[in-house]
Computed example of a mutant assay.
Amino acid sequence: MTKKQWQGWGPGEQAEQHYLVEPRVLAGGGDIRHVSEFLRASGWRDKSTAGGPLFLESPDRTVRIAYDPYVLPGGWTIHGKATGHQDEWWANLGRQTPVEIVAGLTDALTRPRSAHAPNVWAPLQEQRWRTAPDAGHVTATSPDKTAWMQFHQMPNGDAMWWSGAKDQQGNGWTAQFTPSTPMHLVQAFSTALASPEPVMRPRGRVPHSSQIRTTSVSVLPSQLSAWQQARVQAARAATWARNWTANRPRTTARPHATTHHARR
């Protein structure tokens, strides 16, 4: 007896089992293409070598992003060059940092900076994270106590942002930002960190942890591809719009009196 295909499925296409994982902070690294394909579509240059780590450079060559799983501890390194009023800065995120949280930071690198003053704590407070001030630092902890965000004031006056997540078995990741890291990028990271939305992982890629909750879903390969392409197309559209706005010719309207005189 053959199984009847659902109308609209592609020929021979079969659903694959995936899981919605929450909290997202404990979902594991995920597919790095979630980060890299968006950046490529935003005009970033791929300078990776065959068989080597991922290496991407911003269109203006001021920011570089690398992902290296072949070294210990491995993970993401984001480096910004000194430009104008901005000092050189670094951000390091562990290998098990969920790509959806990494993308919160890296996607922000492709967008114009907001005119509003950044507030790293606001997204955490909206999700009811608890903030506890202590000598030299302030720490916000998620309601389930699996994740944290900390502002640490060092004796020399420098400030460092430190974040991460860990389950009861000790599995997790950490992220560090140098004092010079632009605050709007740290806020973009904290927004993705605190998001209550679950993330999707394929079967066999869900971490073994007693503190995660999973919901089994059947997903078609064509659906996964469509979701990925929608994200890429959004990046391309935004890049095209920015380039068109920056490069369009500017025209100055003639004064009304001059136009009236010319008509006469």
Rank of each mutant, 00 (worst) to 15 (best):
L185R: 13
F189P: 00
H256G: 05
T214E: 05
P196T: 05
P155C: 04
A230Q: 15
H261W: 13
Q233I: 00
A188W: 02
V186N: 02
T146C: 10
R205C: 01
L220Y: 01
W148R: 15
W173E: 07
A175R: 12
S142D: 01
P182I: 02
A159N: 07
H261D: 15
V232S: 04
P196R: 05
A226P: 02
R254T: 04
A262W: 06
K166D: 06
Q153K: 09
R250Y: 09
S222Q: 13
F189C: 02
Q187T: 08
T215I: 12
Q211H: 05
A175Q: 12
E197R: 12
A147F: 05
H260I: 11
R236Y: 03
V186P: 03
H208P: 03
A226K: 07
W148Y: 13
V199L: 06
A253E: 12
W162M: 09
Q168C: 02
I212N: 01
H208E: 15
D144A: 06
E197V: 10
F151D: 10
P198R: 14
S195Y: 10
I212R: 04
P198V: 07
S163W: 10
W148Q: 09
A230H: 15
N171Y: 02
A192H: 08
L185P: 08
Q223L: 09
Q187M: 09
W148D: 06
R248H: 13
V232F: 06
T181V: 10
R248N: 13
T174M: 09
H261C: 04
P202M: 04
G172Y: 13
A226C: 02
T252Y: 05
T174L: 10
H184D: 12
A253T: 15
T214H: 04
L220T: 01
